[in-house]
Design a binder for these strands. Structure first.
Length: 430
RNA sequence: UCCACCGUAGCUCAGUGGUAGAGCAAUCGGCUGUUAACCGAUUGGUCGCAGGUUCGAAUCCUGCCGGUGGAGCCA
Protein backbone atom coordinates (compact mmCIF):
# COMPACT_ATOMS: atom_id res chain seq x y z
CA UNK A 1 0.00 0.00 0.00
CA UNK A 2 1.37 3.39 -0.98
CA UNK A 3 1.39 6.20 1.56
CA UNK A 4 3.30 9.38 2.46
CA UNK A 5 5.47 10.27 5.45
CA UNK A 6 2.89 12.66 6.93
CA UNK A 7 0.44 9.73 7.09
CA UNK A 8 2.69 7.03 8.57
CA UNK A 9 1.13 7.40 12.03
CA UNK A 10 -2.00 5.83 10.53
CA UNK A 11 -0.04 2.74 9.45
CA UNK A 12 1.85 1.59 12.57
CA UNK A 13 2.59 -2.12 12.27
CA UNK A 14 1.60 -2.20 8.60
CA UNK A 15 3.76 -2.76 5.56
CA UNK A 16 3.68 0.31 3.29
CA UNK A 17 5.55 1.73 0.30
CA UNK A 18 6.91 5.28 0.18
CA UNK A 19 8.16 7.07 -2.91
CA UNK A 20 10.97 9.41 -1.93
CA UNK A 21 14.54 10.60 -2.09
CA UNK A 22 17.58 9.75 0.00
CA UNK A 23 18.44 12.83 2.05
CA UNK A 24 21.40 11.22 3.78
CA UNK A 25 22.53 7.82 5.03
CA UNK A 26 24.75 6.16 7.58
CA UNK A 27 25.81 2.58 7.39
CA UNK A 28 27.89 0.01 9.14
CA UNK A 29 28.70 -3.57 8.25
CA UNK A 30 25.35 -5.03 9.19
CA UNK A 31 22.92 -2.11 9.48
CA UNK A 32 22.13 0.95 7.36
CA UNK A 33 20.13 4.06 8.26
CA UNK A 34 18.48 5.81 5.32
CA UNK A 35 17.23 9.37 5.87
CA UNK A 36 14.28 9.51 3.51
CA UNK A 37 12.18 12.47 2.44
CA UNK A 38 9.10 12.53 0.23
CA UNK A 39 8.02 16.17 0.26
CA UNK A 40 5.58 15.68 3.12
CA UNK A 41 8.28 15.01 5.69
CA UNK A 42 11.40 13.12 6.71
CA UNK A 43 11.62 9.56 8.10
CA UNK A 44 14.44 7.18 8.87
CA UNK A 45 14.49 3.79 7.19
CA UNK A 46 16.40 1.06 9.00
CA UNK A 47 17.90 -1.71 6.86
CA UNK A 48 19.19 -4.68 8.86
CA UNK A 49 21.45 -7.06 6.91
CA UNK A 50 20.06 -10.16 8.58
CA UNK A 51 16.45 -9.21 7.69
CA UNK A 52 16.78 -8.45 3.96
CA UNK A 53 18.25 -10.20 0.98
CA UNK A 54 21.83 -9.51 -0.02
CA UNK A 55 20.89 -7.42 -3.04
CA UNK A 56 18.77 -5.04 -0.93
CA UNK A 57 21.49 -4.53 1.66
CA UNK A 58 24.11 -3.90 -1.01
CA UNK A 59 21.82 -1.30 -2.59
CA UNK A 60 21.28 0.36 0.80
CA UNK A 61 25.04 0.71 1.22
CA UNK A 62 25.64 1.89 -2.34
CA UNK A 63 22.76 4.31 -2.89
CA UNK A 64 23.79 7.96 -3.30
CA UNK A 65 22.43 11.17 -1.77
CA UNK A 66 19.25 12.43 -3.47
CA UNK A 67 18.69 9.28 -5.52
CA UNK A 68 14.98 8.57 -5.90
CA UNK A 69 13.51 5.28 -4.79
CA UNK A 70 10.51 3.30 -3.63
CA UNK A 71 10.95 1.95 -0.13
CA UNK A 72 8.78 -0.83 1.26
CA UNK A 73 8.73 -1.78 4.92
CA UNK A 74 6.90 -1.82 8.24
CA UNK A 75 6.15 1.36 10.18
CA UNK A 76 7.15 1.16 13.84
CA UNK A 77 6.98 3.62 16.72
CA UNK A 78 10.40 4.63 17.98
CA UNK A 79 11.22 7.14 20.69
CA UNK A 80 14.65 7.82 19.16
CA UNK A 81 13.08 9.36 16.05
CA UNK A 82 12.20 13.08 15.99
CA UNK A 83 9.10 12.11 14.02
CA UNK A 84 8.23 9.35 16.51
CA UNK A 85 8.19 6.69 13.78
CA UNK A 86 10.66 4.71 11.69
CA UNK A 87 10.39 2.26 8.85
CA UNK A 88 11.93 -1.20 9.04
CA UNK A 89 12.84 -1.64 5.40
CA UNK A 90 12.15 -4.89 3.53
CA UNK A 91 12.65 -3.81 -0.06
CA UNK A 92 14.33 -0.98 -1.97
CA UNK A 93 13.62 -0.11 -5.59
CA UNK A 94 15.95 2.45 -7.13
CA UNK A 95 14.13 4.80 -9.53
CA UNK A 96 17.01 7.08 -10.48
CA UNK A 97 20.56 7.29 -9.23
CA UNK A 98 21.79 10.83 -8.43
CA UNK A 99 25.49 11.36 -9.13
CA UNK A 100 27.56 13.93 -7.21
CA UNK A 101 24.74 15.87 -5.55
CA UNK A 102 26.30 19.27 -4.86
CA UNK A 103 24.73 20.10 -1.48
CA UNK A 104 26.56 17.81 0.90
CA UNK A 105 25.77 17.32 4.61
CA UNK A 106 28.01 20.15 5.80
CA UNK A 107 28.06 23.94 6.02
CA UNK A 108 27.83 25.89 2.80
CA UNK A 109 28.05 29.57 2.02
CA UNK A 110 25.13 31.74 0.98
CA UNK A 111 26.26 32.28 -2.60
CA UNK A 112 26.73 28.56 -3.23
CA UNK A 113 23.36 27.70 -1.72
CA UNK A 114 21.59 30.46 -3.64
CA UNK A 115 23.18 29.25 -6.90
CA UNK A 116 21.66 25.84 -6.06
CA UNK A 117 18.35 27.17 -4.76
CA UNK A 118 16.46 24.68 -6.98
CA UNK A 119 18.11 21.88 -4.96
CA UNK A 120 18.47 23.70 -1.64
CA UNK A 121 14.66 23.73 -1.33
CA UNK A 122 14.90 19.97 -0.68
CA UNK A 123 16.77 20.45 2.59
CA UNK A 124 15.12 20.12 5.96
CA UNK A 125 15.33 23.76 6.98
CA UNK A 126 14.14 25.14 3.65
CA UNK A 127 11.34 22.58 3.60
CA UNK A 128 10.23 23.76 7.05
CA UNK A 129 10.31 27.40 5.94
CA UNK A 130 8.16 26.78 2.87
CA UNK A 131 5.65 24.85 4.99
CA UNK A 132 5.41 27.83 7.35
CA UNK A 133 5.03 30.19 4.40
CA UNK A 134 2.23 28.00 3.12
CA UNK A 135 0.54 28.02 6.53
CA UNK A 136 0.66 31.83 6.64
CA UNK A 137 -0.93 31.93 3.18
CA UNK A 138 -3.56 29.33 4.10
CA UNK A 139 -4.43 31.13 7.34
CA UNK A 140 -4.65 34.44 5.45
CA UNK A 141 -7.28 33.09 3.06
CA UNK A 142 -9.14 31.49 5.95
CA UNK A 143 -9.10 34.65 8.08
CA UNK A 144 -10.29 37.04 5.38
CA UNK A 145 -12.92 34.66 4.08
CA UNK A 146 -14.29 34.23 7.60
CA UNK A 147 -14.34 38.01 8.01
CA UNK A 148 -16.46 38.42 4.87
CA UNK A 149 -13.72 39.66 2.56
CA UNK A 150 -13.48 38.63 -1.05
CA UNK A 151 -10.22 38.31 -2.92
CA UNK A 152 -9.77 40.72 -5.81
CA UNK A 153 -6.66 40.60 -7.97
CA UNK A 154 -5.17 43.94 -9.03
CA UNK A 155 -3.16 44.14 -12.26
CA UNK A 156 0.59 43.59 -12.29
CA UNK A 157 1.22 45.69 -15.39
CA UNK A 158 0.33 49.29 -14.63
CA UNK A 159 0.63 52.68 -16.23
CA UNK A 160 1.65 54.63 -13.14
CA UNK A 161 3.07 54.26 -9.65
CA UNK A 162 1.02 54.13 -6.46
CA UNK A 163 3.39 56.05 -4.23
CA UNK A 164 5.53 58.00 -6.65
CA UNK A 165 8.58 57.42 -4.50
CA UNK A 166 10.10 54.01 -5.12
CA UNK A 167 11.88 52.95 -8.28
CA UNK A 168 9.69 50.94 -10.61
CA UNK A 169 10.55 48.27 -13.13
CA UNK A 170 9.99 49.76 -16.52
CA UNK A 171 8.72 47.77 -19.48
CA UNK A 172 6.83 48.34 -22.71
CA UNK A 173 3.13 47.69 -23.17
CA UNK A 174 3.19 47.51 -26.97
CA UNK A 175 3.90 51.18 -27.79
CA UNK A 176 3.14 52.55 -24.31
CA UNK A 177 5.34 52.78 -21.24
CA UNK A 178 4.34 50.38 -18.48
CA UNK A 179 5.59 49.43 -15.04
CA UNK A 180 5.46 46.34 -12.85
CA UNK A 181 3.19 46.91 -9.88
CA UNK A 182 4.78 48.09 -6.65
CA UNK A 183 1.42 48.00 -4.87
CA UNK A 184 -2.12 47.04 -5.80
CA UNK A 185 -3.54 49.51 -3.34
CA UNK A 186 -5.13 52.07 -5.64
CA UNK A 187 -6.94 49.29 -7.46
CA UNK A 188 -8.00 47.75 -4.16
CA UNK A 189 -9.64 51.05 -3.21
CA UNK A 190 -11.71 50.79 -6.37
CA UNK A 191 -12.53 47.18 -5.48
CA UNK A 192 -13.59 48.17 -1.94
CA UNK A 193 -16.09 50.62 -3.44
CA UNK A 194 -17.50 47.71 -5.44
CA UNK A 195 -17.40 44.86 -2.89
CA UNK A 196 -17.02 46.47 0.57
CA UNK A 197 -14.24 44.38 2.10
CA UNK A 198 -11.57 43.02 -0.23
CA UNK A 199 -8.05 41.66 -0.07
CA UNK A 200 -5.37 40.91 -2.60
CA UNK A 201 -2.43 38.57 -2.47
CA UNK A 202 0.19 38.81 -5.13
CA UNK A 203 3.72 39.68 -6.19
CA UNK A 204 5.04 43.21 -6.13
CA UNK A 205 8.20 44.69 -7.59
CA UNK A 206 10.62 47.36 -6.40
CA UNK A 207 13.61 48.31 -8.52
CA UNK A 208 15.46 49.68 -5.50
CA UNK A 209 19.13 48.80 -5.10
CA UNK A 210 18.35 47.54 -1.62
CA UNK A 211 20.84 45.12 -0.13
CA UNK A 212 19.75 44.16 3.35
CA UNK A 213 18.28 41.16 5.14
CA UNK A 214 14.84 42.79 4.99
CA UNK A 215 14.65 43.47 1.25
CA UNK A 216 13.69 41.55 -1.87
CA UNK A 217 13.29 42.93 -5.38
CA UNK A 218 10.19 40.80 -5.93
CA UNK A 219 8.07 40.02 -2.88
CA UNK A 220 4.50 39.05 -2.03
CA UNK A 221 2.08 41.35 -0.34
CA UNK A 222 -1.36 40.93 1.19
CA UNK A 223 -3.37 44.13 0.77
CA UNK A 224 -6.81 44.37 2.42
CA UNK A 225 -8.99 47.41 1.79
CA UNK A 226 -12.20 48.10 3.71
CA UNK A 227 -15.06 50.51 2.95
CA UNK A 228 -16.73 52.09 6.00
CA UNK A 229 -13.77 51.25 8.26
CA UNK A 230 -11.84 54.08 9.86
CA UNK A 231 -8.26 54.07 11.12
CA UNK A 232 -9.22 52.59 14.50
CA UNK A 233 -11.29 49.80 12.90
CA UNK A 234 -8.37 48.99 10.63
CA UNK A 235 -5.88 48.71 13.50
CA UNK A 236 -8.17 46.26 15.29
CA UNK A 237 -8.46 44.15 12.14
CA UNK A 238 -4.69 44.20 11.67
CA UNK A 239 -3.90 42.96 15.16
CA UNK A 240 -6.53 40.24 14.87
CA UNK A 241 -5.15 39.14 11.52
CA UNK A 242 -1.50 39.03 12.62
CA UNK A 243 -2.47 37.17 15.82
CA UNK A 244 -4.46 34.71 13.73
CA UNK A 245 -1.62 33.79 11.40
CA UNK A 246 0.91 33.50 14.24
CA UNK A 247 -1.41 31.26 16.24
CA UNK A 248 -2.19 29.17 13.14
CA UNK A 249 1.51 28.53 12.57
CA UNK A 250 1.94 27.60 16.24
CA UNK A 251 -0.97 25.21 15.96
CA UNK A 252 -0.15 23.56 12.64
CA UNK A 253 3.63 23.80 12.21
CA UNK A 254 5.12 22.47 15.45
CA UNK A 255 7.50 20.07 13.65
CA UNK A 256 8.69 22.86 11.35
CA UNK A 257 9.25 25.34 14.20
CA UNK A 258 11.24 22.68 16.02
CA UNK A 259 13.32 22.01 12.89
CA UNK A 260 14.13 25.71 12.81
CA UNK A 261 14.91 25.86 16.57
CA UNK A 262 12.41 28.70 16.94
CA UNK A 263 11.81 29.99 20.47
CA UNK A 264 8.02 29.64 20.37
CA UNK A 265 7.44 31.35 23.74
CA UNK A 266 7.92 34.67 21.94
CA UNK A 267 5.21 33.73 19.44
CA UNK A 268 2.70 32.46 21.99
CA UNK A 269 2.57 35.98 23.38
CA UNK A 270 1.46 37.43 20.03
CA UNK A 271 -2.24 37.98 20.80
CA UNK A 272 -4.38 41.05 20.14
CA UNK A 273 -4.44 43.80 21.26
CA UNK A 274 -1.00 45.11 20.28
CA UNK A 275 0.67 48.11 21.95
CA UNK A 276 0.45 51.46 20.16
CA UNK A 277 2.73 54.45 20.25
CA UNK A 278 2.30 57.70 18.38
CA UNK A 279 5.06 59.05 16.18
CA UNK A 280 5.46 61.94 18.68
CA UNK A 281 5.98 59.55 21.59
CA UNK A 282 8.26 57.34 19.52
CA UNK A 283 10.52 60.34 18.90
CA UNK A 284 10.52 61.08 22.64
CA UNK A 285 11.29 57.43 23.39
CA UNK A 286 14.22 57.49 20.98
CA UNK A 287 15.60 60.66 22.55
CA UNK A 288 15.34 59.02 25.98
CA UNK A 289 17.25 56.05 24.60
CA UNK A 290 20.03 58.34 23.46
CA UNK A 291 19.26 58.71 19.76
CA UNK A 292 20.10 62.33 19.00
CA UNK A 293 20.28 61.74 15.24
CA UNK A 294 16.54 62.14 14.66
CA UNK A 295 14.15 65.09 14.97
CA UNK A 296 10.39 65.45 14.60
CA UNK A 297 9.53 65.35 10.90
CA UNK A 298 12.16 62.81 9.90
CA UNK A 299 11.41 59.21 9.04
CA UNK A 300 12.77 56.37 11.16
CA UNK A 301 15.73 54.34 9.98
CA UNK A 302 16.16 50.65 10.66
CA UNK A 303 18.08 51.17 13.96
CA UNK A 304 15.28 53.45 15.22
CA UNK A 305 12.58 50.92 14.39
CA UNK A 306 14.53 48.17 16.12
CA UNK A 307 15.01 50.30 19.23
CA UNK A 308 11.29 51.06 19.39
CA UNK A 309 10.37 47.40 18.86
CA UNK A 310 12.75 46.35 21.66
CA UNK A 311 10.65 48.33 24.12
CA UNK A 312 7.71 45.99 23.57
CA UNK A 313 7.26 42.21 23.69
CA UNK A 314 4.63 42.15 20.93
CA UNK A 315 4.43 43.77 17.50
CA UNK A 316 3.88 47.51 18.02
CA UNK A 317 1.92 50.05 16.00
CA UNK A 318 3.56 53.41 15.39
CA UNK A 319 0.72 55.81 14.51
CA UNK A 320 0.14 59.39 13.34
CA UNK A 321 3.26 60.09 11.28
CA UNK A 322 3.89 63.57 9.86
CA UNK A 323 1.99 63.93 6.58
CA UNK A 324 5.13 65.09 4.78
CA UNK A 325 6.94 61.75 5.07
CA UNK A 326 3.95 59.58 4.13
CA UNK A 327 2.07 58.77 0.95
CA UNK A 328 -0.16 61.35 -0.72
CA UNK A 329 -3.42 59.41 -0.25
CA UNK A 330 -3.32 59.20 3.57
CA UNK A 331 -6.06 61.06 5.46
CA UNK A 332 -4.96 63.91 7.76
CA UNK A 333 -5.98 63.69 11.41
CA UNK A 334 -8.95 66.13 11.70
CA UNK A 335 -7.62 67.33 15.07
CA UNK A 336 -4.03 67.73 13.85
CA UNK A 337 -3.76 68.10 10.07
CA UNK A 338 0.06 67.95 10.14
CA UNK A 339 -0.14 64.21 10.94
CA UNK A 340 -2.00 61.45 9.09
CA UNK A 341 -4.22 58.57 10.22
CA UNK A 342 -1.70 55.85 9.52
CA UNK A 343 0.24 53.14 11.29
CA UNK A 344 3.23 50.95 10.67
CA UNK A 345 3.35 47.63 12.50
CA UNK A 346 6.87 46.83 13.66
CA UNK A 347 7.65 43.18 14.35
CA UNK A 348 9.66 42.25 17.46
CA UNK A 349 13.24 40.98 17.45
CA UNK A 350 14.49 43.44 14.82
CA UNK A 351 12.49 42.15 11.85
CA UNK A 352 11.27 45.63 11.01
CA UNK A 353 8.08 46.90 9.46
CA UNK A 354 5.69 44.14 8.42
CA UNK A 355 2.58 46.29 7.83
CA UNK A 356 2.01 49.78 6.54
CA UNK A 357 -1.56 51.07 6.54
CA UNK A 358 -3.75 54.12 6.71
CA UNK A 359 -7.18 55.62 6.41
CA UNK A 360 -7.44 57.06 2.91
CA UNK A 361 -8.46 60.55 1.84
CA UNK A 362 -12.13 60.39 0.83
CA UNK A 363 -12.64 64.09 0.07
CA UNK A 364 -12.40 65.01 -3.61
CA UNK A 365 -11.11 68.55 -3.07
CA UNK A 366 -8.34 67.48 -0.70
CA UNK A 367 -7.30 64.69 -3.05
CA UNK A 368 -7.13 67.15 -5.95
CA UNK A 369 -4.94 69.38 -3.81
CA UNK A 370 -2.62 66.45 -3.09
CA UNK A 371 -2.43 65.71 -6.83
CA UNK A 372 -1.16 69.23 -7.42
CA UNK A 373 1.36 69.03 -4.58
CA UNK A 374 2.74 65.72 -5.83
CA UNK A 375 2.54 66.62 -9.53
CA UNK A 376 0.32 63.64 -10.29
CA UNK A 377 -1.40 64.10 -13.60
CA UNK A 378 -2.35 62.38 -16.79
CA UNK A 379 -4.92 59.73 -17.62
CA UNK A 380 -3.28 57.08 -15.41
CA UNK A 381 -4.47 58.93 -12.30
CA UNK A 382 -7.90 60.09 -13.45
CA UNK A 383 -9.82 56.99 -12.46
CA UNK A 384 -8.51 57.14 -8.85
CA UNK A 385 -9.96 60.65 -8.44
CA UNK A 386 -13.31 59.42 -9.67
CA UNK A 387 -13.56 57.10 -6.64
CA UNK A 388 -13.94 60.32 -4.62
CA UNK A 389 -16.45 61.75 -7.08
CA UNK A 390 -19.05 58.97 -7.12
CA UNK A 391 -20.23 57.95 -3.64
CA UNK A 392 -17.04 58.42 -1.65
CA UNK A 393 -16.98 56.77 1.80
CA UNK A 394 -14.51 56.55 4.70
CA UNK A 395 -12.20 53.65 4.02
CA UNK A 396 -8.93 52.18 5.19
CA UNK A 397 -6.47 49.55 4.17
CA UNK A 398 -3.04 48.13 4.73
CA UNK A 399 -0.34 46.00 3.18
CA UNK A 400 1.45 43.10 4.87
CA UNK A 401 4.79 41.88 3.53
CA UNK A 402 4.63 38.10 3.40
CA UNK A 403 8.35 37.32 3.44
CA UNK A 404 9.13 39.62 6.36
CA UNK A 405 6.26 38.10 8.28
CA UNK A 406 7.41 34.55 7.52
CA UNK A 407 11.02 35.43 8.40
CA UNK A 408 9.88 36.82 11.74
CA UNK A 409 7.60 33.89 12.63
CA UNK A 410 10.23 31.36 11.55
CA UNK A 411 13.02 33.27 13.29
CA UNK A 412 15.42 33.25 10.33
CA UNK A 413 18.16 35.76 9.57
CA UNK A 414 17.24 36.88 6.09
CA UNK A 415 14.04 37.26 4.03
CA UNK A 416 15.65 35.58 1.01
CA UNK A 417 14.99 32.17 2.59
CA UNK A 418 11.30 32.99 3.09
CA UNK A 419 10.51 32.85 -0.65
CA UNK A 420 11.14 29.83 -2.93
CA UNK A 421 13.15 31.64 -5.60
CA UNK A 422 14.29 35.02 -4.30
CA UNK A 423 14.92 37.88 -6.70
CA UNK A 424 17.73 39.91 -5.18
CA UNK A 425 20.07 42.62 -6.33
CA UNK A 426 22.38 40.68 -8.71
CA UNK A 427 20.36 37.50 -8.53
CA UNK A 428 17.95 36.40 -11.23
CA UNK A 429 19.13 32.75 -11.20
CA UNK A 430 17.78 30.17 -10.71
C1' U B 1 24.91 55.08 -5.15
C1' C B 2 27.93 55.01 -0.53
C1' C B 3 30.67 52.37 3.65
C1' A B 4 33.00 47.80 5.66
C1' C B 5 34.67 42.91 4.96
C1' C B 6 35.69 38.70 1.78
C1' G B 7 37.48 35.81 -2.95
C1' U B 8 42.90 29.44 -1.96
C1' A B 9 40.48 21.77 -3.93
C1' G B 10 33.37 20.21 -5.65
C1' C B 11 32.10 22.68 -0.46
C1' U B 12 33.80 25.24 4.36
C1' C B 13 38.27 27.33 5.60
C1' A B 14 43.79 27.79 7.41
C1' G B 15 48.18 29.63 5.23
C1' U B 16 50.29 37.36 5.56
C1' G B 17 57.41 37.21 1.44
C1' G B 18 60.73 31.14 0.77
C1' U B 19 58.22 23.27 -1.57
C1' A B 20 49.97 24.40 -1.93
C1' G B 21 47.39 22.61 3.47
C1' A B 22 43.11 20.58 6.75
C1' G B 23 38.07 18.93 7.40
C1' C B 24 33.82 17.49 4.60
C1' A B 25 32.19 15.40 -0.28
C1' A B 26 33.74 11.58 -3.98
C1' U B 27 36.27 6.48 -4.60
C1' C B 28 38.03 1.81 -1.96
C1' G B 29 38.01 -0.95 2.72
C1' G B 30 36.15 -1.67 8.05
C1' C B 31 32.18 -1.29 11.71
C1' U B 32 24.63 -3.85 14.39
C1' G B 33 21.28 2.16 16.69
C1' U B 34 23.59 5.98 13.59
C1' U B 35 21.79 11.52 14.04
C1' A B 36 26.62 16.81 9.81
C1' A B 37 27.87 8.86 12.40
C1' C B 38 32.80 6.99 13.11
C1' C B 39 37.95 4.64 11.70
C1' G B 40 41.88 3.77 7.69
C1' A B 41 43.50 4.75 2.65
C1' U B 42 43.15 7.19 -2.27
C1' U B 43 41.86 11.12 -5.53
C1' G B 44 41.39 16.26 -5.93
C1' G B 45 44.66 23.28 -7.33
C1' U B 46 44.75 28.81 -13.51
C1' C B 47 45.40 30.67 -4.91
C1' G B 48 38.92 35.66 -8.79
C1' C B 49 41.24 38.44 -13.33
C1' A B 50 45.02 41.91 -15.24
C1' G B 51 49.26 44.64 -14.32
C1' G B 52 53.29 46.11 -10.91
C1' U B 53 57.23 45.63 -6.73
C1' U B 54 60.83 41.57 -5.57
C1' C B 55 66.18 36.92 -6.50
C1' G B 56 61.34 34.91 -5.17
C1' A B 57 54.15 36.73 -4.52
C1' A B 58 48.36 32.93 -2.41
C1' U B 59 50.90 36.64 0.78
C1' C B 60 52.89 43.54 -0.67
C1' C B 61 50.84 47.67 -4.27
C1' U B 62 47.22 49.45 -8.28
C1' G B 63 42.97 48.61 -11.22
C1' C B 64 38.91 45.58 -12.51
C1' C B 65 35.27 41.64 -11.65
C1' G B 66 32.31 38.83 -8.23
C1' G B 67 30.19 38.02 -3.32
C1' U B 68 28.56 39.11 1.84
C1' G B 69 26.83 42.59 5.54
C1' G B 70 25.08 47.48 6.39
C1' A B 71 23.14 52.64 4.96
C1' G B 72 19.37 55.17 2.10
C1' C B 73 14.30 53.48 0.31
C1' C B 74 10.54 50.49 1.82
C1' A B 75 6.84 45.54 3.13
Amino acid sequence: MKTTIDKVHEHVGEEVTLGGWLANKRSSGKIAFLQLRDGTGFIQGVVVKAEVNEETFELAKRITQESSLYVTGTIVKDERSPLGYEMHVKKLELIHEAVDYPITPKNHGTEFLMDHRHLWLRSRKQHALMKIRNEVIRATYEFFNEQGFIKVDPPILTGASAEGTTELFHTKYFDEDAYLSQSGQLYMEAAAMAFGKVFSFGPTFRAEKSKTRRHLIEFWMIEPEMAFMDHEDSLELQEQYVSYIVQSVLKNCQIELKTLDRDTSKLENVQAPFPRITYDDAIKLLHEKGFDDIEWGEDFGAPHETAIAESFDKPVFITHYPAKIKAFYMKPDPDRPEVVLCADLIAPEGYGEIIGGSQRIDDLELMEKRYEEHHLHGPAYEWYLELRKYGSVPHSGFGLGLERTVAWIAGIEHVREAIPFPRLLNRLYP
